[in-house]
Computed example of a mutant assay.
Amino acid sequence: MSFTMNLYYTGEGDNAKKFAQEMEERGIADQIRQQPGNLKYEYFQPLDDPHTILLIDTWESQEALDADHDSPMMAELAKLREKYNLHMHAERFIPEKLPDKDNKFLRK
């Protein structure tokens, strides 16, 4: 079963944004997107928090994420987190079908 991780990277000034930019520029983010089982890997910035970057990271299975965690890219990612002195917290979500009563509020 697939699941989504919301990872919040927070640092001083614009360090979180610089981290995400370097992840993209160095191709580390694209390498993670190429990992078997990765369904989504996208960075966002909350409008009310310029010191935080949100990563939405979706995987087909825990095994796919575990394999990613064992990859060389994770060592590079860890070095960048240290470089920018970032702190993190995470949330995990399992998708479920929306009830019909909720779907009526979606504009398609």
Rank of each mutant, 00 (worst) to 15 (best):
H51V: 09
G27L: 08
D48I: 15
E25A: 09
E22C: 02
Q31I: 00
Q21E: 14
L47G: 15
P36S: 03
L47Y: 12
I28V: 10
E24H: 02
D48T: 15
F44N: 07
E24P: 00
Q31D: 09
Q21I: 12
P46Q: 12
Q35L: 06
D30Y: 07
G37M: 08
L47C: 09
E42L: 05
I32Q: 00
Q21C: 02
M23T: 04
Q45N: 11
K40Y: 12
A29I: 01
E42V: 10
Q45W: 07
G37K: 08
R33K: 11
Y43N: 04
R33T: 05
A29L: 06
N38E: 11
D48C: 11
D48G: 09
Y41Q: 07
G37Y: 06
E24F: 01
P46F: 10
E22Q: 04
Y43D: 05
P46T: 14
D49A: 10
E42T: 11
E22N: 01
Q45R: 13
H51R: 12
I32V: 13
P46V: 14
D48F: 15
P46C: 12
K40N: 15
E22R: 02
H51Q: 13
P50F: 05
Y41I: 09
P50Y: 05
G27S: 05
Q21G: 01
Y43P: 03
E42S: 10
E22L: 03
N38D: 10
N38R: 05
G27P: 04
E25Y: 01
I32S: 03
P46M: 13
F44V: 06
L47T: 15
Q21W: 02
E24S: 05
H51C: 11
R26L: 12
I32A: 06
P36Q: 05
Y41V: 08
G37A: 09
E42Y: 02
Y41A: 06
R33N: 01
G27R: 03
Q35P: 00
K40A: 14
M23W: 02
P36E: 06
A29G: 03
Q35N: 09
R26W: 00
A29Y: 00
H51Y: 13
I28N: 02
P50G: 04
Q35M: 12
P50K: 08
F44Y: 11
Y43F: 13
Y43T: 07
E24C: 03
D49N: 14
M23S: 03
F44P: 04
M23L: 07
G37S: 09
Q31V: 00
R26M: 09
I32D: 01
P36M: 05
F44S: 08
N38F: 06
F44H: 09
R33M: 02
Q21L: 13
R26H: 01
E24V: 10
I32Y: 00
Q34E: 14
H51P: 04
Y41M: 07
Q21A: 14
Q34D: 14
Q35T: 12
F44T: 10
A29N: 03
Q45H: 10
E42H: 08
A29P: 00
K40W: 13
Q45M: 12
D48Y: 15
L47I: 15
P36D: 05
P36N: 04
Q21H: 07
E42K: 07
Q21P: 00
D49H: 08
Q35V: 06
Q45C: 10
D30R: 13
D30V: 08
Y43I: 06
I32K: 00
N38C: 15
D48H: 14
R26Y: 00
E25L: 05
N38S: 13
D30I: 08
Y41T: 09
Y43M: 06
G27I: 11
Q34G: 08
E25I: 02
P46L: 11
